[in-house]
C-alpha cells in the first residue's frame, strides 16, 4: 500500500530532514514510526501526504508514485496532523462538508459516516458549534471524523493520541484496528511506545533522518520491550 524507496528530503536551507529511507507498508498493516524529537518523523509523513516534496527517491501509494500523480495519491490518503489546526470560523459540520466536497463524497456517505464516527467519538452534539469553541481534543476528534468520511485506503497519522481523553483514545484504536481489518493500512508516528507495542504489527525507528531499525514488531523487540529497544538505539 505504501512504499518509500530511498526517500530523502533536503530543505532549501540545506538541512537534511530525511535520508535514504526505504519502508514498505502492506494492506492490513499498522505501522509505527517512532523516533526522538527532530528525528524526521513529521518530515517523512508530510512527504507521504504530499505537503513536502521528495528530494530523492520515490514514494509509492497503492502503486501510484507521488511524483507522477500527487492528486490521485492524496485522494486515497487521509492525513491527521500532530496539531489539529482547522478553520476556526467554520462549524464542525461545515468543516466536514468542506472536506467531503473536496473528496467528492456523496451526501449519503458523508451523512452515514459522520453520524457513525461522531457518535463513537462523542462529538455529534457539538458539530453545529463553531470550531473556535472546541478544545484541542475535540478538534482532534473532528479531524479524525473528517479524515474517515471519504473512505481512504491509507491513514497517515502524526501523534494521533495527543489531547484525546482515554475513552476517545480507546475508540480511535478500535477504529484503527477495524480499518486495517477491512483492508486499509495505517502509518503513524507516536511517542507512546506502549500503544505502538500493543497496536502495531510493524515498526521503524528513525534517528537523525535515517532509519536505524525496521521490521515486524516481533523481530525488532525480540525478548525486550519496545521502550528498551528505543532507548538502546538512542544512546
Amino acid at each position: 500500500m505504501l512504499k518509500l524507496i530511498n526517500y530523502s528530503k533536503v530543505y532549501p536551507n540545506g538541512k537534511v530532514g530525511a535520508s535514504n529511507i526505504s519502508l514498505n507498508v502492506k494492506k492490513g498493516d499498522i505501522f509505527a514510526f517512532i523516533g526522538p524529537n527532530g528525528a524526521g518523523k513529521t518530515t517523512t509523513i508530510k512527504s507521504i501526504v504530499g505537503i513536502n516534496d521528495v528530494t530523492e527517491g520515490d514514494i509509492i501509494v497503492d502503486g501510484i508514485s507521488i511524483k507522477d500523480d500527487a492528486m490521485k495519491v492524496k485522494s486515497i490518503i487521509a492525513y491527521i496532523p500532530d496539531n489539529p489546526d482547522v478553520y476556526d470560523t467554520l462549524t464542525g459540520i461545515q468543516y466536514i462538508n468542506l472536506i467531503s466536497d473536496i473528496y467528492k463524497v456523496s451526501k449519503k456517505d458523508r451523512e452515514e459516516l459522520t453520524n457513525k464516527y461522531s457518535e463513537l467519538l462523542g462529538l455529534k452534539d457539538e458539530l453545529n458549534n463553531p470550531i473556535s469553541n472546541y478544545s484541542h481534543g475535540m478538534r482532534q476528534k473532528l479531524v479524525i471524523i473528517a479524515s474517515l468520511v471519504h473512505r481512504p485506503k491509507l491513514l497517515v497519522l502524526d501523534e494521533p493520541f495527543v489531547g484525546l481523553d482515554p475513552k476517545a483514545s480507546y475508540v480511535v484504536k478500535e477504529i484503527m484496528k477495524e480499518f486495517c481489518k477491512q483492508g486499509g493500512a495505517i502509518f503513524f508516528s507516536t511517542h507512546v511506545l506502549e500503544v505502538a507495542e500493543k497496536l502495531c504489527n510493524k515498526v521503524a525507528i528513525i534517528k537523525n533522518g535515517k532509519i536505524v531499525k525496521s521490521g515486524s514488531m516481533a523481530e525488532i523487540k525480540k525478548d525486550k520491550s519496545l521502550e528498551e529497544v528505543f532507548l538502546e538505539t538512542n544512546k
Binding site: I93, N97, D101, I102, E111, K124, D125, L127, N128, N133
Partner: peptide, 21 residues
C-alpha cells in the same frame, strides 16, 4: 466562548470543490 447550539440535526450539503472553497 461564542454561541452554542445543542442540536442533533446536522445539515449535510453537497457542493463542488469550487463552491466549498
Amino acid at each position: 466562548l461564542s454561541y452554542n447550539i445543542k442540536s442533533d440535526t446536522l445539515k449535510f450539503s453537497k457542493g463542488g470543490l469550487f463552491d466549498g472553497m
